[in-house]
């Protein structure tokens, strides 16, 4: 990797986090669209963020907000481990939603934990639209 590429990459992280999230989200949205999903809605994403589903083991109902907080600009806390989770909104957390593989990994893990099933491409696109649209 040449030093100029690295400098540019570091500059991009420091200076233009919004732009980074934008290109990653766009590539994910394109993939969801080719699976038949879309258009994506911030309102539907916002509702889904707070939708509570009781887990099969009979514990307390869970939603995204259980660990991340009702406001994606706020700091969250893992429901079981208590670990602090930095805000998900790219508007306040530079670097969030900037790596498509990372985003897919956490959709896979957390849709399962929270709702007991995988999220559909439509649901994922709506979540991304909501999170990316949140203003500082």
């Amino acid at each position: 990797m040449n030093p100029i590429t690295v400098t540019v990459a570091v500059w991009a992280v420091l200076v233009a986090p919004g732009a980074l999230a934008a290109s990653a989200v766009e590539s994910l949205e394109a993939a969801y669209r080719s699976a038949g999903a879309g258009p994506f809605s911030t309102g539907t994403g916002a509702d889904a963020w707070r939708r509570e589903i009781p887990p099969r083991d009979g514990g307390a109902p869970r939603s995204c907000a259980t660990c991340h907080g009702a406001d994606p600009r706020s700091v969250g806390r893992h429901a079981t481990t208590g670990k602090i989770i930095e805000p998900l909104a790219p508007a306040v957390s530079p670097g969030r939603l900037s790596d498509p593989e990372h985003v897919e990994k956490w959709f896979r893990r957390n849709c399962e934990w929270t709702w007991g099933r995988a999220c559909t491409p439509q649901e994922k696109g709506d979540f991304l639209a909501y999170l990316r649209g949140v203003q500082p």
Binding site: T5, A9, V10, V13, L20, S23, G95, S98, D99
Partner: peptide, 14 residues
């Protein structure tokens, strides 16, 4: 590729 490099430099920074 771009994302990889960026993630890489992020990891280094962390």
């Amino acid at each position: 590729m771009r994302t990889k490099i960026v993630t890489g430099s992020f990891a280094l920074a962390v």
